[in-house]
């Protein structure tokens, strides 16, 4: 009696499935609950990976609910690679699809924020642009130049107060979140990613830069989105967080 890896896998992912024939204990009796060691190892290790990867979601839902949800998630989306640092990429969409969580519509974006923090943590190193490089440039030429971001800088826009929710659940004494949209830029000054709350128009300006627009064009777009957009504030946050990589000067 041989047991294929496909049979093993099916039985392992379904606690109600019978243990495949041909698996024995040391005395040639059916393996029985010994098989559960593998079921448990897989479930526990992936559940723990989810708990570690989404600490704020775990806090918001409570560990028991989170573990139950992880059990459903890991069956629907087993890891597609051995790199557990990337596990859970489908979790935000999974949360959005959960009928019973529809009263917590912000959860998916909080999960996106946690994923982005993890991505930033493992992103490639890059020397950030020195503020002097901007100061030295001719102001008119500067407005026609582009800016690129370091790989660890990640922009996240949300109709929910994701930054406030994240802070409230990670920082002792942080203010209680109030409603409203929030845009976040994740920066990684050295090794620890920080979600930075962007002022009005800031995300529009950064998104335009990321799309390849010049500083000036991006400015116009940001002002269209938010009349009170202040370039100096957003630029200062980015320089401070080491989020800018290089200045792309326009070649005439």
């Amino acid at each position: 009696m041989s047991v294929t890896q496909d049979q093993f896998r099916r039985a392992m992912l379904d606690p109600a499935a019978p243990v495949p024939d041909g698996l024995l204990d040391g005395a040639d009796r059916p393996a029985g609950r010994r098989f559960n060691v593998y079921r448990n190892n897989v479930a526990v290790s992936l559940t723990e990976a989810m708990r570690t990867g989404f600490p704020v979601i775990t806090r918001l839902l409570g560990q028991q609910n989170m573990d139950g949800l992880s059990g459903l998630f890991l069956r629907a989306h087993p890891p597609a690679s051995p790199l557990m640092m990337h596990y859970g990429a489908e979790f935000p969409a999974f949360l959005e699809g959960m009928e019973q969580l529809s009263h917590l519509p912000y959860l998916a974006d909080v999960a996106r924020l946690e994923l982005a923090l993890r991505r930033s943590y493992h992103a490639a190193d890059a020397a950030p642009l020195a503020p002097e490089a901007l100061g030295a440039a001719d102001p008119e030429a500067l407005m026609q130049s582009g800016l690129t971001l370091v790989p660890a800088a990640i922009l996240l826009r949300s109709p929910w107060p994701v930054h406030a929710i994240w802070r409230f659940n990670t920082e002792p004494g942080a203010p209680k979140p109030t409603s409203g949209a929030q845009d976040v830029l994740i920066t990684r000054p050295e090794f620890d990613p920080i979600p930075v709350l962007l002022p009005p128009g800031g995300a529009d300006w950064i998104a335009a830069l990321m799309d390849g627009h010049s500083i000036g064009d991006a400015h116009t777009r940001a002002q269209d989105a938010a009349a009170d957009f202040d370039l100096a504030t957003t630029l200062g946050l980015m320089l401070q967080g080491g989020a800018l990589r290089s200045l792309i000067t326009k070649k005439d």
Partner: peptide, 14 residues
């Protein structure tokens, strides 16, 4: 083994 059908199980299987 730990991967089957491009699914990784995060355990060392016999």
């Amino acid at each position: 083994w730990s991967t089957h059908d491009s699914h990784f199980f995060n355990d060392l299987l016999p």
